[in-house]
Design a protein around this nucleic acid. Structure first.
Ligand SMILES: [Mn+2]
Ligand SMILES: [Mn+2]
Ligand SMILES: [Zn+2]
Ligand SMILES: [Zn+2]
Lengths: 132, 132
DNA sequence: TAGCATATAAGAATAATTATCACTTGATAA
DNA sequence: TTATCAAGTGATAATTATTCTTATATGCTA
């Protein structure tokens, strides 16, 4: 929370509410989910403020985007190096930690010799225990 | 193209145009890109028809969604088992074929014992040759 | 505590997609 | 052929997610 000040972001009441919501660790929330929770604490809060702040926090490196399928962007408060499992039935997202991931390109079918790979993300799709 | 009939989809002129566009293999197009190309051949075509048909083709298993980040859904005509590289600069999407992929869960940090994994998708992010 | 850069609420604007619905058409059978 | 009818279509309205605009307000620093 103090980190946001270091990044030049003012500590406004709205932001405090957002930090509070995010710290309650219901990870992978959409902007709207965050908004719905936050307005309970701060009814005047506007959706635009949520969107604006989420993006600023991403830029400041305090959050990350999550590009799962589905319509709305999700934000991940978990900055560890990790991957995701998505339940196709209920949409639940679970963090997946890997000890190791390795893959071998098929050089006859994909030529990645001139690209620079910065990161890789593994998405596992399936059915979670509750939906199974 | 004939496969769509097998799936109970009528062979309408609009669909023929869409099949033509899709067969020209400019893969990973958005619905709007498809629409823009298609209306050159069939000016009366409406966007709703494109969206409707793309979804039907996905359901029929003749196309697949692509859940990259970004606003609009992309469709993939490549039904092979493959993965993707996305250029962060220009947004270009390249198919990635792997000979092999294997990963080891960290059992202390992720418990996937009660989930069923149906598929996995690897997304590589980086900078392509042209943007590099 | 004054001044200013930053942040805010509200609402308009935009983009992507989906829903509705009256009308049309392809496929099949008479 | 023609009749039948489920499936498909275009136009348009509606939704959803998000961004922009702007007048006002507020943290922070000097
Ligand atoms: Mn996560
Ligand atoms: Mn592909
Ligand atoms: Zn589930
Ligand atoms: Zn590029």
């Amino acid at each position: 929370m103090e980190k946001s000040k270091e990044k030049g972001l003012k500590l406004t009441p709205q932001r405090m509410v957002l930090f509070h919501i995010l710290s309650e660790d219901d990870r992978h929330m959409t902007a709207d989910e965050i908004y719905q929770k936050a307005r309970a604490e701060h009814p005047m809060l506007s959706p635009a403020t949520v969107y604006r702040n989420m993006e600023q926090l991403v830029e400041a490196g305090l959050l990350s985007h999550l590009d799962l399928g589905g319509p709305s962007t999700r934000y991940d408060t978990n900055l560890d190096d990790h991957h995701h499992f998505v339940c196709e039935k209920c949409g639940k997202v679970m963090d997946v930690y890997l000890k190791d991931i390795r893959y071998e390109l098929d050089p006859e079918k994909s030529d990645l010799s001139d690209v620079r790979i910065d990161s890789s993300q593994l998405y596992l799709h399936g059915v979670c225990g509750e939906c199974g």
